[in-house]
């Protein structure tokens, strides 16, 4: 492409500024996590004068971070697996079958995406408490309740993205599998799913990130034993002090798994978006 002379320079300047804007908070997060408490309570300095790994040791004692971490891993992991399974079946049905109510289903599911969380937070809380009273199945303040809630949060977008992905896979594959005598389930699991693997990976990443980062429902639906990271991290600030270095260290620790996972799989994510969303 023919470029005007100013373009390479404009590109360098604009992209550098954007990189600076993006990176500055991350830089502060990392360096502050390595500073002693005195240094984060005084005036800010770009270059740390002393480095220490103490905050990374202390975070596990100041707050029961290990328990919160385990809760988050269990909740987000289970929600992801369930969400992907449910979304795969629903998306396959929407992509491959023409049935009454198909459009109604798609529209309903997608429109739940626009509900303000605050609208169903309280009713859901009451419903969970009542289910617990009636059947003895503890949903309120339990990890099960959080799993069910979170997995529906990622469902609409996941189904939508997977429908696009499945639509891109030739029907000929299904038909030849059917000729070979495979039922719908076998066809889906053996033929279509492997071909759609990048899309499934993208959806899994999305579902995990959604569950890992949710704050509103975690703040109402958890108690001391089921508390997850977003709420647990608030405990590094007491009435008198905020342990900023530990807070930054803990933020870093909870971010590394998702950021690493997302960045490693981002290519699939972009491919999934291209197939599903960008049509």
């Amino acid at each position: 492409m023919r470029e005007p002379a100013w373009l390479p320079w404009a590109r360098r300047i604009v992209l550098s500024l954007l990189a600076l804007f993006t990176l500055a908070p991350v830089y502060v997060m990392v360096t502050s996590a390595l500073k002693p408490l005195n240094d984060v309570q005084g005036p800010f300095h770009w270059i740390p004068s002393r480095l220490t790994v103490r905050p990374f040791v202390d975070i596990w004692h100041t707050v029961p971070l290990g328990r919160y971490f385990l809760n988050s891993v269990v909740v987000a992991g289970t929600a992801t697996v369930c969400s992907v399974v449910v979304a795969v079946f629903a998306a396959y049905a929407v992509s491959r079958y023409r049935f009454a109510g198909r459009r109604a289903f798609t529209v309903t599911v997608l429109s739940t995406q626009m509900f303000p969380g605050i609208l169903f937070l309280l009713p859901l809380f009451v419903i969970y408490v009542n289910i617990g009273n009636l059947t003895g199945v503890e949903l309120y303040a339990s990890r099960t309740g959080l799993v069910i809630t979170y997995l529906t949060f990622s469902l609409p977008f996941s189904i939508w993205m997977l429908v696009g992905y499945f639509d891109g896979i030739p029907r000929g594959l299904d038909e030849s599998a059917a000729v070979d005598g495979a039922g719908p389930l076998r066809t889906l699991l053996r033929v279509v799913l492997p071909a759609a693997l990048p899309g499934v990976v993208a959806v899994a990443v999305y579902a995990f990130m959604t569950a890992w980062g949710e704050v509103l429902f975690a703040s109402v639906m958890t108690d001391d034993t089921s508390r997850t990271l977003p709420i647990g991290l608030q405990q590094y600030s007491t009435e008198h002090d905020v342990y900023w270095n530990q807070l930054m260290a803990a933020s870093l620790v909870v971010s590394v798994p998702v950021v690493a996972g997302f960045l490693a799989l981002q290519r699939h994510f972009v491919a999934g978006l291209t197939a599903g969303a960008v049509k």
Binding site: T22, S32, M209, L229, S251, S255, L263
Partner: peptide, 30 residues
């Protein structure tokens, strides 16, 4: 560069926003 640009989206909301609240402290913030 692309990877770098995507980092804020990949960070959990609360971790990112807690960091910003540190940056925005009046006396000790960046």
């Amino acid at each position: 560069l692309r990877t770098l640009f995507l980092t804020p989206y990949a960070l959990p909301v609360y971790a990112a926003v807690i960091t910003w609240s540190f940056l925005l402290q009046r006396d000790t913030g960046m």
